[in-house]
């Protein structure tokens, strides 16, 4: 077993394109980094930015958001909303101290198994290079029970 850091990448992806694309990669027996954990939602528009925050808070080192190409969304324009939210989400994460390279938005269609493989591998590599996020430890709030009180006169 190597000591190489293995990041956990949460992949929040839509049912109709990206999940099918990942499925295609699987049935075609393409190899890709086992670091990605797929979480399927019906549409990338369903991905509340809070899901991304929670993924980081709960231990993900990187988060990939993926859906149908613009124009191809099963719900017409869900992915356009995802697109509009993404730059500010990234900026906000940077303000929290989460490097922009830990989040990524990609459009991957049902026929693009190879793109899924490429993105999964790239994402794993770029997050591995950053090292662990380790949010729970690095952003831990001091437990109140351990704090001393000051008794003023």
């Amino acid at each position: 077993m190597s000591d190489r850091f293995e990041p956990v990448i949460a992949v929040l992806c839509c049912n109709w394109c990206t999940y099918a694309g990942a499925d295609l990669a699987g049935t075609a027996r393409m190899k890709y980094a086992p670091n990605v954990r797929l979480l399927r939602v019906m549409c990338s528009g369903r991905i509340d930015p809070a899901f991304v925050l929670r993924a980081f808070a709960e231990g993900a080192d990187g988060v990939l958001i993926a859906g149908c190409h613009p124009g191809d969304c099963h719900y017409i324009n869900g992915n356009l909303k995802t697109m509009r939210r993404f730059p500010q989400l990234k900026t906000m994460l940077a303000q929290f101290g989460i490097e922009p390279a830990r989040v990524r938005l990609e459009w991957i269609s049902a026929s693009e198994g190879d793109v899924f493989v490429k993105v999964a591998n790239e994402m794993t590599g770029q997050v591995r290079a950053l090292g662990p996020l380790n949010w729970k430890v690095r952003a831990a709030v001091e437990p109140v029970s351990g704090l001393a009180e000051h008794h003023a006169g």
């Binding site: 930015p49 925050l53 613009p70 509009r84 939210r85």
Partner: peptide
């Protein structure tokens, strides 16, 4: 779920722009 996520989503989702 998260106050900032709500506000971010509410404000940016309705931008009249559909290209990166």
């Amino acid at each position: 779920l998260d106050p900032g996520a709500d506000a971010l989503a509410a404000m940016t989702s309705i931008l009249a722009a559909s290209d990166d």
